[in-house]
Amino acid sequence: MGADRSVKAKEHAPRTESDARHHANLADLTLVLGLAVAAAMFCLAYTVLNPLAQLEEVTEVELRRQWADGSIVLRLTTLGFCGILIWKAIDCLRRISGVEGKPHEFEKETSPLTPRLSDDDRRLRDFCQSGFFVAALFLLWLMYAEGVRAPATAALAWTFAFFSDDWIITSDYSRVLKGRLLRSHRWRMMAANVTLLVILNMVVWEEWGWSGMLGTDAILLPLLLGRRQADKR
């Protein structure tokens, strides 16, 4: 009886270390994907519904003010980035489920490349980075909803617009190159993460104090840590 139980336990346990790692990655990816998609849907809803509720107040003067404070840039960027993020999340879930999509450009040419990261690690790294961007976007829209308007928030809107578009291109390259990131892409992402983190902390500390800053870091830093760990596996 004891031997039979031991055999059954071994059958239900992960067969190899890679199996255990796959399950851990899948759990982390599910959490990151769920939070990122939820934040993206909030940002999309606010971007679309808020102007509709204020149509009577839209004047030429108001449009100029929104251009100056970064609101228009942020709205356009939100529509593009969050829409692509949700589409990529759906595509990721389909591929995990075994439903293969169309091959990406140059995928056949680069198929002989030795993977730098497994698909699990690459997906986790890339969605942690995307989650960092959408979390920063969520916090930025939260500040706009609270009426926070400052040169720093305008700078954040333009910074996000530039680097989020850059990241979409970088992640597509990374997938085709099997987890590899070009050196210039790595430096740009590092600059994006540091810039967004520092300016966000400055604005949040000025508006909401130490508690707000700690809450901001509690959201953003684990995503950067998850990205770093997945990239080094």
Rank of each mutant, 00 (worst) to 15 (best):
H104D: 10
T78I: 14
A39N: 02
K88C: 06
R149Y: 06
L55E: 07
T30H: 11
T153H: 00
R64S: 06
R188F: 15
C92I: 05
R188A: 12
E146S: 15
A152F: 11
K10F: 07
L139M: 09
A154Q: 08
D121I: 10
F162Y: 01
T153G: 00
V73P: 01
G101F: 13
D126V: 03
P222L: 15
D231P: 06
I168C: 06
L55W: 09
D120H: 05
F127V: 03
P151L: 02
F160S: 01
R149C: 13
Y173K: 06
S18T: 12
R116A: 06
L137I: 10
T170A: 14
E60L: 14
T153V: 09
D217P: 01
S211A: 15
K10W: 08
A192Q: 00
T16L: 07
T170C: 09
A38I: 10
R94Q: 03
L113H: 04
A152R: 10
R180A: 03
L31G: 01
E146H: 08
K178D: 03
H22T: 13
P51Y: 08
L113N: 08
A39W: 03
L214R: 10
I169L: 14
A150G: 05
F127R: 02
R122V: 07
L225I: 15
A136H: 05
G131L: 07
T114I: 12
M143L: 15
A39C: 08
L31C: 07
S111N: 13
F127C: 01
C128E: 04
V204N: 03
R21Q: 13
R186K: 12
L197N: 01
S71R: 07
G34L: 15
E146M: 15
R21K: 15
S97M: 07
W210V: 06
R21I: 13
M213K: 01
E206I: 04
E207P: 02
V194E: 05
L139Q: 02
L223K: 00
T16R: 00
K8Q: 14
I86L: 02
S184R: 15
V203C: 00
H12A: 14
L156F: 03
W141L: 13
S118K: 00
L79A: 02
A161I: 05
A135N: 01
L197V: 09
